[in-house]
């Protein structure tokens, strides 16, 4: 038996103790991030999501290939870079996930409860929704973010999102802005993007959804917000709610002009 050169194995553990000084810590984290770039398991979700998109599902046994996520029925390429946006048929602003739920209900005939039963994956059970999100977002790779606020409801969502961003509450008095309102801050060793600064906002938004190595899951943008609010000590963010879409609108709009780069891979 001939054995080929096994060049690099897989991404294994995180850095061990922490027995090195700050500069080398930052450098080691960067090296770790670089090492992760090749072989992003997000691709596994993309493949599964494409299959789910094309598969006849739900009581109506139809695929999502007639689903209009903003650029017309079935158009996936570049659609994510323009979301959230106002949709005439629902008379509301939708993000990708709330729009996918809409299509599952209106096209595939699922109940809203069924469509949203498992939106975030956990150990041993990945979520179909996160796979669909991975597929759709992967089709906007390299496309410039171009989120409009021309419609009054889009403008309203943006302003609502901005208000939520600065809204302090809960037992810890936290707002999004507490952690994401100043340049060059970090929690423990994790760098925090300042989402009020265009460059940081662009880099942050265009790298979600992402495969989180520490969780072994592909995480959607709704998950990102859900988990931020959990740590903010707020109640549970309602999946696809107007408020969640509004905050997404504020953050997506601030990323305009940057090339979309997800699904990415993060620690």
């Amino acid at each position: 038996m001939r054995i080929g050169t096994c060049v690099a194995a897989m991404a294994i553990a995180l850095w061990g103790g922490g027995a090195f000084a700050q500069d080398s810590t930052a450098k080691a984290i960067q090296e770790y991030r670089d090492a992760l770039q090749d072989g992003n398991p997000a691709e596994l979700w993309e493949i599964k999501g494409e299959d789910l998109w094309k598969q006849p599902r739900g009581p109506n046994k139809v695929s999502l290939e007639k689903c209009d996520i903003g650029l017309g029925p079935g158009v996936v390429k570049g659609a994510y870079a323009r979301l959230p946006k106002y949709f005439k048929d629902t008379d509301r602003v939708d993000d990708l996930e709330s729009r996918l739920v809409h299509c599952m209900v209106s096209l595939q005939g699922m109940s809203r409860a069924d469509a949203t039963r498992r939106v975030f994956g956990g150990p041993g059970a990945a979520a179909d929704m996160e796979a669909l999100v991975a597929y759709v977002t992967s089709q906007s790779k390299g496309v410039k973010m171009n989120v409009a606020v021309g419609h009054p409801k889009e403008r309203e969502a943006f302003e609502m999102g901005q208000k939520v961003f600065y809204y302090r509450g809960g037992p810890h008095d936290f707002a999004c802005a507490t952690c994401h309102g100043e340049d060059n801050k970090r929690i423990r060793l994790q760098d925090l993007p300042n989402l009020t600064n265009q460059k940081d906002a662009q880099r942050a938004y265009t790298t979600w959804p992402a495969y989180r190595v520490s969780q072994g899951e592909l995480r959607s943008f709704q998950w990102r917000l859900y988990d931020c609010f959990r740590q903010q000590r707020f109640p549970e963010l309602l999946y696809g709610s107007d408020l969640s879409v509004a905050l997404t609108m504020f953050l997506a709009r601030n990323a305009n002009g940057a090339a979309y780069a997800g699904p990415a891979i993060k620690r």
């Binding site: 001939r2 080929g4 096994c6 596994l44 495969y211």
Partner: peptide
Amino acid sequence: TVNHGGRTVMSAQWGPAVAKNPFVHFRFS
């Protein structure tokens, strides 16, 4: 085990230290 044209070009024995959703990268002639 990785096969090409009826021969094994790479084989590996793994343990629990390999991360979730593993990635393998290698070359063969």
